[in-house]
């Protein structure tokens, strides 16, 4: 892989062969990954695929069963204390104190991190978040979007060098999501490395690089275009009448790996272009619908990867 040639000084996360099991079930298996400094790195995968476990291992909250690596140059096995000082970890579930006000929460974080002037640091963060007029509101009373912004604000307050964000925009409205991502890009421009896990394809497309993990295995790594190209998926887009009946028929054909309706059209995907074309030749020639070549989307790739890994898993 191309990333193996990056000079050491530019790498924020460098881990190899990480494995973690809970009750005998491997949640993360032999995970090796490198993340370059200053990048927004998307971490994708279905529910229960080991994303949260990986993030927790990176910031010292979980000890890997085997494997080794560094985070910001600190050993993840022995230097958890140093890592905690320089990594901001935003949990999936809101984990600030609901019965503390915004200001009190931020001051608490500032004090724990031994910032020179906790009050001033909290105030600056409040201003930056645009929460000046609600600073004394209890954190638990905020809406989902504001909670996420506050959590992010608390994470970046001690000026970390790496941000680990665990599904930061789950359950947040599109406007708040966009604002959130704008903020993340601003932070990355300032030199912060961001590792963000997500389910959303549009968010994945806003990352510099992505990694796809499913059931503990890392299945694809690279930029969005590289991942799509690497999947080698052939794609037909069908429009016209009787699509439901056609979909049922297509699913029985060998060489057709995925059939998914998208509004008024049907996406027909195959891993082998030749096989797909052969299998659908008859139907295409029948002229009942309009067939056009299409580009595989990131979603096609992920659903395909998910299906494949499930096959392997079973």
């Amino acid at each position: 892989m191309a990333i193996a040639t990056i000079p050491d000084g530019d790498i924020a996360i460098d881990v190899a062969h990480l494995t973690k099991s809970f009750n005998g079930r491997a949640v993360v298996r032999d995970l090796t990954m490198q993340v370059r400094k200053g990048l927004i790195y998307g971490f994708l995968g279905p529910n229960g695929s080991g994303k949260t476990t990986t993030l927790r291992m990176l910031c010292g909250l979980l000890t890997p069963d085997s494997g080794h690596g560094t985070c910001l140059g600190f050993d993840i096995l022995t230097q958890a204390k140093e890592i905690k000082r320089h990594v901001g970890y935003m949990t999936q579930r809101f984990s600030l104190y609901a019965d503390l006000s915004i200001r009190e929460n931020l001051e608490f974080v500032a004090r724990v991190h031994d910032l020179p002037d906790p009050r001033a640091a909290a105030k600056a963060a409040i201003d930056r978040l645009g929460l000046s007029n609600r600073a004394d509101q209890l954190a638990g009373e905020l809406s989902g979007g504001w909670k996420q912004r506050l959590a992010l604000g608390a994470c970046i307050l001690p000026e970390p060098r790496l941000l680990l964000l665990d599904e930061p925009t789950a359950g947040v409205d599109p406007k708040a999501r966009r604002d959130f991502w704008d903020e993340i890009h601003t932070l990355a421009n300032e030199g912060l490395t961001v590792l963000v896990s997500t389910h959303y394809m549009d968010e994945a497309e806003r990352c510099h690089e992505i990694a796809y993990i499913a059931y503990g295995d890392l299945l694809a790594v690279g930029t969005v275009d590289e991942v799509i190209a690497g999947a080698h998926l052939a794609n037909w887009i069908v429009t016209g009448e009787g699509l439901a009946e056609l979909a049922r028929q297509l699913r029985t054909l060998p060489g057709v790996d995925m059939v998914a309706p998208f509004g008024a059209s049907l996406h027909v995907v195959g891993r082998d272009a030749q096989k797909l074309d052969d299998a659908t030749a008859e139907l295409r020639a029948s002229g009942a619908q309009v067939w056009a070549r299409g580009e595989a989307t990131l979603e096609d790739v992920f659903i395909d990867l998910m299906g494949r890994s499930k096959d392997n898993f079973a």
Binding site: C59, G60, L61, K81, K84, R85, V87, Y89, T91, R93, F94, S95, L96, Y97, A98, V109, V112, H113
Partner: peptide, 13 residues
Amino acid sequence: ERGTMESLLSMPI
């Protein structure tokens, strides 16, 4: 129970 332990543990305390 409230989930605040996770972020407390990720801090240098």
